[in-house]
Amino acid sequence: MMEMIRIVVLALASLSALSILASDYSYTFTTPQREMRYQSLMEELRCLVCQNQSLADSNAELAQDLRKKVYDMITTGNDDDQIMDFLTDRYGKFILYDPKLNYENAPLWLLPILMICIGVYVISRLAKQGERSEAVIPQSAQDDADALVKHLEERSKQL
């Protein structure tokens, strides 16, 4: 099993080291919206070879191929949903970095909200407890305190 894993990694590495075809550095778009769509899609799609990089960052050859594919699809007028469907039909939902809200990943979004609600609840209980009159120190007590501090300061100066 370990051997196999090592071999797969080797295979993937050899795939990424190669670059026969021209790269994608000369992509231009007809409208700035299209360019922005391309950029944001690149951040949201995961490279399957270098699995910790987005398509924007990865130099793997498969990433280059996919960038070209997305570029082609944008230029021929496909919208973002069509492009993502195309990719998930072939590579599965693994390729999407931003889990679109659906039943499966609802917990990802619901749990933080739930936790915040619990937190707010805890604080509101604290509020109920402490909802007395806001502290106002009577002036006489304040004067006494000030006098004491002054007295102690003078004493400490003498030491």
């Binding site: 070879v49 191929d65 594919k69 072939r90 590579y91 599965g92």
Partner: peptide, 8 residues
């Protein structure tokens, strides 16, 4: 790509 190949 249509087959979803990511590592030969």
């Amino acid at each position: 790509m249509d087959l979803g190949v990511y590592g030969v």
